Amino acid sequence: MAQGGNPQGKKTGKGQGKAARRARQEALARQEAEQAAKERRQQTIIGAVVVALAVILLAVIAFFIAKPLIASKIGKSADSTSTKADPQAYAAVQEVSHKPSKATKEGGFVISKNGYNKPVEGVPTIGLYSDPLCPGCGALNRQIDPMLKAMMNAGQINLEEHFMVGLDSLSTDEYSSRATGAITYVAEHDDDPNQLLDFVSNLFAEGFQPEEGQGYKSVSDQQIKEQALKAGVPQEIADQAFSREYQEWLEALQAYIPTKPELLNVSGSNQIKGKMTTPTITVNGHFFDQNAVPSSSNIKEALLKSIGLSEKQVGKTGELPSIGDKGKPLSVE
């Protein structure tokens, strides 16, 4: 009986041993699996932390790289909190080696009944900032240009014309730069300022000035030249007016002029308030707020009122605006 029971007992012991080994092996496998999972979780956490730190580091680096670029861009467009224009942008204008000798250091052409750079004493100077493609500039020119020329030729005002190139991106062929380049060339080489003003008026004429943006239709140099010839510009000057030789200077001015605090809009929508837009008018260097012109009035009446001259006096030699050459614009309200 005992012998019959021993083999069964030994077999059971072996089975139990195997079961125990399997259990130990399974437990060890579980421990190894749990340890591997734990390590994977740790690696995942470490990897996530590393990635997060890398993103933060890159963001910090990007911020410090972009900060001066952003500040420069804001300064160039319009910083309404600044009381001075961007000195670096101004220096860049002065450093351009090839620029028109008739232009002021601020990039304007001063015109009077006496010609270029010979202002009449004791009368206001009206500054105009415009772009050949700007529709508002065209509308303004068509309204007030005949009056301004009459007053200039009568010695009642001086004009300071600033021509800009900021709307090239709204044409397919850099119209602003080509037209303004031609205007600048004519101003430098033709001694009759009336021919320059007539040329500009021709470019702003309702039947000639192209639309900006999607409605733009290409305008050739030849078409622009025809407007110069129509204004009386000599053929030899008109032929050479498209060399783009003043482009670097014009681009430097485009970066500088919008940083001048005295040219920033003081009213209007949030899109324009605190920014320089075209057309801009100044009177003796002071901003003339076109947005403040009452709806019952018009820009001609308001501008005359701001310098202290009546419409009946326009073009009459000896009848001078009341503000003189140093006064601020009078209220137009």
Rank of each mutant, 00 (worst) to 15 (best):
Y246K: 05
E95S: 09
G47E: 15
I272Y: 07
S322F: 03
V314Q: 08
Y116R: 08
M147F: 02
K76G: 09
M276F: 10
Q31P: 00
G115I: 05
G318A: 00
D145M: 10
P234N: 09
I111C: 06
G15M: 12
A139V: 14
N202S: 12
V266Q: 09
P193L: 11
K105W: 08
G122E: 05
G17M: 11
F204D: 14
I46P: 03
V332H: 13
E245Y: 02
Q195T: 14
A23C: 00
S297R: 11
A150S: 13
P119T: 10
G274D: 13
V120K: 04
G138K: 00
G315F: 05
V233I: 07
M276G: 00
N270I: 01
S101T: 13
Q195S: 13
I307G: 11
E174T: 02
V332L: 12
A19R: 15
V49G: 14
Q240R: 03
K217R: 14
S177A: 08
G122K: 02
S80I: 09
I157S: 10
L250W: 07
P210A: 06
S72N: 15
R22D: 13
K14Q: 04
E206K: 15
K275L: 15
M164S: 12
E174P: 01
Q8M: 09
Q223P: 01
L167R: 03
E161T: 09
Q25I: 06
N284S: 07
M147I: 11
T104M: 10
Q247P: 01
I126K: 11
G9H: 10
E311H: 00
P100K: 13
K113P: 00
A29W: 00
E251C: 01
T83D: 10
A27Y: 08
L140D: 08
N265D: 10
G274H: 13
V93E: 00
G138I: 00
I224A: 06
F288M: 11
L140T: 11
E188K: 09
P279G: 00
E95N: 09
N114Y: 13
G9F: 12
Y90P: 01
S310C: 05
S220K: 03
Q209E: 06
D221H: 02
E26G: 06
S331H: 05
K113D: 07
L159F: 13
E262R: 12
K102I: 14
G166N: 10
K113I: 05
V50W: 04
R178L: 13
G324K: 02
L28S: 13
K328H: 07
K326T: 12
S171W: 01
Y116W: 12
L303I: 06
L57M: 15
G213N: 04
L69T: 06
P100E: 14
V186K: 05
G181E: 05
N298D: 15
T280D: 05
E34P: 01
I257K: 04
Q254L: 04
A302K: 03
M151N: 06
L28Q: 15
S220R: 04
L69R: 06
P329F: 05
G107E: 12
A92R: 08
V120N: 10
V332K: 12
H98R: 11
I281H: 11
P7L: 07
Q214F: 03
D289V: 03
A228S: 08
P7N: 07
A187K: 00
S130Q: 01
G136F: 14
